[in-house]
């Protein structure tokens, strides 16, 4: 029951973050919302493992915790890279 409660809370959070990701208005808002969505997915997967009685799924959460960083850094490099090209450095 407690896992279901937590999952409901996480789902509400995901819905709100999704709304921000769709609304924008700037690209940075979307990046922020997508980042937050990533964290919430980690929580959802971890909690869902407990809900269905197989908590060894936490490997999946670990992948996200580690690999998501590469994606985030790539996004921010993309943003800054354009900046560098425009600045002519």
């Amino acid at each position: 029951m407690m896992f279901a409660t937590a999952i409901v809370g996480i789902l509400i959070t995901m819905a709100l973050a999704l709304a921000r990701a769709l609304k924008g208005p700037t690209v940075f808002d979307r990046i922020l919302a997508a980042n937050m969505f990533g964290t919430k997915t980690i929580l959802l997967i971890a909690a869902a493992g407990f809900l269905t009685g197989r908590p060894d799924w936490t490997d999946l959460a670990l992948v996200y915790a580690l690999v998501n960083f590469a994606g985030t850094v790539a996004v921010l490099k993309y943003v800054r890279f354009q900046d560098m090209a425009a600045g002519g450095e």
């Binding site: 940075f28 980042n35 670990l62 915790a65 580690l66 998501n68 985030t72 921010l76 943003v79």
Partner: peptide, 27 residues
Amino acid sequence: KLLMVLAFLLYTSPVSGHALVKAAYSH
């Protein structure tokens, strides 16, 4: 493993937050 997930999150999320805000500011 769950605590490791937490440790990595506490490590990466400030880094990406910092870089995000910095990029936004420079834009």
